[in-house]
Amino acid sequence: MKNKRALIGNQLMGVLYLALLLLIALGIVAAIIGMFGKGYEFREAEATLMSEKIAKCLSESSTLEEFEQFINSRTGKLSSEEKVNAFLDLLSKNCNFHAKNIKEGLGFVIISNGEELVRWKYSETDCALKERSTADSYPSCFTTEFDAQRNGATQTIVVSVSSNHNSRERPAKV
């Protein structure tokens, strides 16, 4: 006569064994997805690079002066989009930046002596949230500051850039 308790115990051990293997498999899959699933994280490096490049451009060229002249020359209020386009056109003309790609891939804000000159898709809240959370949707940000001699006075220029730029998939050619 078979020992029913032993049979049940045997079956239970079998189920536990399979559950253990499943747990190990899930752990391995999760580790691999964690390491390789998200792509190459590059936003912080890009925000740093572009913040410093734009700051270098502003310090070595007349971009800021020309931008302020443009704003002062316009009668009536300028929309933020018009300001951004004018600023990017000057960056493109003076420092060889690609205005369209910057507009699509980056956010920025330029501040002179505490006064905001131009802003595009840059949010201090999002930057702060990125530092405090592991969520991927927030952009990476970097700020570069420098002092410039302008109009006989020293002005502090702050260049903050955010990047949520990612690669795009190009479908296979048919």
Binding site: M50, K53, N96, H98, N101, S167, R168, E169, A172
Partner: peptide, 14 residues
């Protein structure tokens, strides 16, 4: 791989 490619834009006019 034979499927799609990954493309990334740069920010300078070169």
């Amino acid at each position: 791989s034979p499927g799609s490619a990954k493309c990334y834009s740069y920010f300078v006019k070169l």
